[in-house]
Amino acid sequence: MKIIIILIATSLVVALTFLVLFIRAVKAGQFDDTDAPARRMLFDNKSENQSDST
């Protein structure tokens, strides 16, 4: 049965880690604007070279 205590402790630690990460992300403003990142990820970084040739 002792194994269960270790398992519970580990799972709690893992869950807590994620909670802390979530709180940090919220405080850093990651959820303030959810539209811009969705569009931003579609931009090509290569565009600078391409446009030179056009």
Binding site: S11, A15, F18, L19, F22, V26, F31, D32
Partner: peptide
Amino acid sequence: DNESRSLMIRIGVAGFAFGNIMLM
């Protein structure tokens, strides 16, 4: 903005507790 952030953190904490207490 600050209000919505603090609400989001509250939801996170409550969800975390909800899940783990159910497990227990």
